[in-house]
Structure formats: structure tokens, C-alpha cells
Simulated scan of single mutants.
Amino acid sequence: MAIDNGIEIMNGSPLLGKKVVYFLQPTTDPVGHSAILPALQTGGSISIGGDSIDEQTKFGRVVLPSTNEDSIDLETAVVWGDRSIDVLKNAKHEGNQVKVWRVVIDKKFSWKDGDQQVFPAMFGYGVVDSLDIDDGDDLVKASYTLNIVGMLRDGSFAVSDDQLNALTQLYDFERPGEKSGNFGY
């Protein structure tokens, strides 16, 4: 007789890439210091990788897990005064690690933890593998790879409503004559 254990159907609305942001913090910052949001993130990706032991024996193939090799790749447009570029450059030159968080800032994925609104996040200590700055014809872009010590850890990241608005809106409403000058200058 056939066994029917049922099926589990996954369904829902997909996650937009613009709802995923990355934060950095130098390991040299004192306790209580805030995380840094690198300016104008244009792309990011994580790689959950590693090697396995794959040996052929007289009795057949043996495959065992061996190493975790998680990494994060991020690309940003370079903005004058963006502290994150210096954090990465200094960490690479001085041999320090960088704390990194990948945070999903979509309200439909948030929940309350006490009186704080939290969002799903991954965290790790990263070693700067490379920091590349491209001075092409368009925007100057920085791209970098952080090789994660051990593996990325799942958790949550607190973001207030004011912080969420700052992350998702380019500017606030203003009344005529309230400010002068171009946006972003």
C-alpha cells in the first residue's frame, strides 16, 4: 500500500530586493555604538557555501560535510562622507573583521519583541576579502566581499518606525519656502 504523507505548499508574495539592506559596524567601535547603513546600496547577495569531503572507497562513494564558507557581496554608489568605505578599507589594511547584518525591512515580515519592532536578519563577522572602487563613466561604485567567520547566524534587528521611514523614503514632505537648494546637496 502506498504511503501518503501529504504535501506542504509554499505560497505568498515575493520579497523585493529593495527591501533587503545591509548594515556594517567595525569591530573596533565601542560597545553601544550604532551600525552603519552604507549609502545607496545597488546590490547585495549572500552565498551559503562550503566544501564537502567526497571520496570514492572500495565500498562506494562517501560524501560528508566539511566546511562552511558563507560570504556577503555588496555594491554601493560612492557618496562623499560615507563612513562605510573607510571602515572596509581600514579593516582590510589593519587585519580587522567587520560586523555585518542583512536585514529584511518589509513590515509584513516584522514582529514585536517587547516594545520594539524587529525584522528578520542574518549576522556575521566578516573578513574583507576585497574592496573595489570603480571610477567608470557613470556613478563611482564600490563593491566588496566579506568572507564570514564560521557561518551567518539568524536573528532579528530592531528598526523603529522613524528609522524605517528614513530607510524607505528619499525625502519628507515640505511646504513652499521651507528649504532652499537641490535635493541631496
Rank of each mutant, 00 (worst) to 15 (best):
I48D: 14
S66N: 07
V104L: 12
L64D: 04
D86T: 12
G44I: 12
Q41V: 08
W80L: 11
R83Y: 02
S66M: 07
V63I: 15
N96Q: 02
S110P: 04
I72C: 06
D73V: 05
G43V: 11
K18Q: 14
A91D: 01
I85K: 02
D86H: 09
E94Q: 12
S13G: 11
D51M: 14
T57E: 00
F23V: 04
D113E: 15
V20T: 11
F109A: 14
I85P: 00
W101Y: 08
V21R: 02
Q56P: 01
K112Y: 06
G114E: 02
D29S: 06
L15H: 03
S84C: 00
L16W: 14
T42A: 05
I53H: 11
L74T: 09
L16M: 14
S47V: 13
G12V: 02
V79E: 05
N96Y: 09
S34D: 12
I53P: 02
S71P: 09
G43N: 12
K107Q: 15
I36G: 00
D115K: 09
F59M: 06
S52F: 14
V62G: 01
S13P: 10
T57S: 01
T27F: 00
P26L: 00
K19A: 12
L74E: 09
T67R: 10
Q41M: 10
V21L: 07
A91I: 00
K107M: 15
V78Q: 04
T57V: 00
L40V: 15
L64K: 13
D70A: 11
V62P: 00
Q41F: 02
K107T: 15
H93E: 09
P14S: 13
A91M: 04
K18D: 10
L37Q: 09
L37A: 10
A77K: 12
Q56S: 06
A39S: 07
Y22N: 05
V79F: 05
H33M: 09
D54M: 06
T67F: 10
D115F: 08
T42F: 01
G50S: 06
S71G: 14
E94S: 12
P30W: 04
R102W: 10
W101I: 06
T67N: 13
G60A: 02
A91Q: 00
D86K: 10
